[in-house]
Design a protein around this nucleic acid. Structure first.
Lengths: 206, 206
DNA sequence: GGATGTGAATGTCTTCACAGCT
DNA sequence: AGCTGTGAAGACATTCACATCC
């Protein structure tokens, strides 16, 4: 497949969000201009993004909301649900576990791990926190391709190495470190202090 | 000032992280190649990023770690601390409030707001949750330029409008909606479901 | 000698603009 | 007539490569 840019993928996910809202509002048809307006981009951008994957619209009319939503779900691989394991049973881990948006989009938490004996065995949103030592054996029994890492910075690389060895192919990293992984593993990092720093830059330079 | 790309700003923040680590390790000098290696980029990229703001290195030697760190802090506006208000006293808000990385980088929580009477008045990490109704009056007394929005999607735009009216110039948004704000206000959004969706795309297309 | 700083070349993403369907 | 789909143009970002200086 032709190389698709990260920005295009992120925009597709955004468009999908708007399509879902449009469905809720009972709309059946939407134009690239509408989608663009809501996503802060241009209609040409929307059409170009979609054109990498096919032509889903009707000239003179626009796109069928349900059809386009289906196509994008297909493109993003959201037609099936994903098992997700979470490593790090801290405050942030707990917040993520309760975050509605994940389940709504087909991401289901299968397990939560920590290494702190005080946390192991406690119940979190219907799941029991397991000893990180069981990670490899558990994933061998039930393969999982997405992991969320919410450990302190010092532990994150080690956890990532173990996840990779256990066959995880995609990691969402909240620890403030740059994870090193093999090329066939994808990492997305959310670095919250860094987000604030870009805001600080914007404030300092207006 | 010449227009600086968002990617450049984010990389600067990353370099700063590495410089801090290098300081901790007692290094006094670092080359663009070292910085590049740790940040997953190239030495030319590092030099180009820095060149937008001046020439901070010594040819044949590299960069002085403390000096470069200082320069980047200056560029990013991190030489002063920032007052931050948080809106939304949910699980995620609580997690952010406890997140060490913020304070470490000079971002200090000044207040936390919610509209749920059951939460108002309770203590969160040394702060008392205040009624969102006091937002405008509080910010008039103590101007603040950064706000973090961690409300449900439905409430986020309304909260953003009020923040803007109260003079906030930078918003870090965790609600899964696209906030509409005037041009002189900067928004950074962290959309967690969207991050997982890009991972799902990567899994589906390898 | 060794690493920076930077124009020039290349590559990538976005926008334009219009032919082509419905 | 209206809106898509898409080559071509333009803007922007990254990489190259080398003169420059410590």
């Amino acid at each position: 497949m032709r190389k698709i840019s990260d920005s295009t993928v992120r925009r597709l996910a955004l468009y999908l969000r708007f399509l879902e809202q449009s469905t809720a509002q009972g709309l059946t048809t939407i134009s690239s201009a509408d989608l663009a307006h809501r996503g802060g981009t241009t209609s040409a951008q929307v059409r170009k993004d979609l054109s990498f994957f096919g032509s889903f619209g009707k000239r003179g009319l626009g796109y069928s909301v349900p059809e386009l939503a289906g196509r994008i779900r297909d493109i993003l691989g959201l037609k099936r649900s994903h098992r997700v394991v979470l490593v790090g049973a801290g405050k942030m881990g707990g917040a993520l576990l309760h975050y509605r948006g994940f389940r709504q989009h087909g991401f289901d938490f299968a397990a939560i791990y920590d290494r702190d004996p005080k946390k192991i065995g406690s119940h979190w949103n219907g799941l029991v926190v397991r000893d990180i030592r069981h990670l490899e054996a558990d994933l061998k029994r039930e393969p999982t391709d997405i992991a969320i890492v919410v450990t302190p910075a010092e532990a994150a690389q080690d956890v990532a190495d173990r996840l990779v060895r256990a066959g995880v192919k995609a990691i969402l990293n909240f620890a403030p470190v740059q994870l090193v992984v093999p090329l066939d593993v994808t990492v997305q990092s959310v670095n919250m202090a860094l987000e604030l720093e870009t805001l600080s830059f914007a404030l300092a330079n207006r």
